[in-house]
Simulated scan of single mutants.
Amino acid sequence: MFKRTIHQQDLTIINIYAPNNRAAMFIKQTLLNQKDHNVIILGDFNTLLSSLNRSSKQKLNKETTELNNTINNLDLTDIYRIFHSSMNKYTFFSAAHGSFSKTDHILCHKATLSKYKKVEYYPAFYRIMME
């Protein structure tokens, strides 16, 4: 986690690499512990938030459904999806399953969405631009 002031606005950025086991519960607890509206939570969540995030359709388990409910209740959104809604860019390929998935996410509060003008994904990092 680090805090920066960008264009006279305080911003907290939390980078998460969730564990392989119980990733959804880990992310949910991290979100519930965060009360700042000027926060971006990003990284490898090691869980699919939507069936849109996988090339082969897979049902979401109970923990992921609970995580999605928490994201909705906290009024968060994946800003990468907002800026690139027509594009499904996968970030992981499973040779064992022969499928692509997107486990990397960038969450922010919907109320702060207008502050961001561009979000780009690079294999090693994200670039988020503010006005």
Rank of each mutant, 00 (worst) to 15 (best):
M1P: 15
M1G: 15
R4E: 04
T5H: 03
T12P: 02
I14L: 07
N15K: 14
I16G: 01
I16N: 00
Y17R: 15
P19D: 14
P19S: 15
R22T: 12
A24W: 01
F26P: 06
L31F: 01
N38H: 04
V39K: 02
D44F: 04
D44L: 14
F45W: 08
T47G: 03
T47W: 03
L48T: 05
L48F: 02
S51H: 05
L52E: 15
L52W: 11
R54Q: 09
S55D: 00
Q58W: 01
K62G: 04
K62F: 04
E63F: 01
T65P: 01
E66H: 08
L67K: 03
N69G: 13
I71Q: 04
L74P: 09
R81P: 11
H84K: 09
M87Q: 10
N88G: 11
N88I: 05
Y90E: 03
Y90V: 02
T91N: 08
F92T: 01
F93V: 00
S94W: 04
S94K: 07
A95F: 07
A95K: 09
K102A: 15
T103L: 15
T103C: 15
D104H: 10
H105S: 08
C108T: 12
H109M: 05
K110F: 02
L113D: 10
K115T: 06
Y121S: 12
Y122N: 09
F125S: 11
I128T: 11
M130D: 07
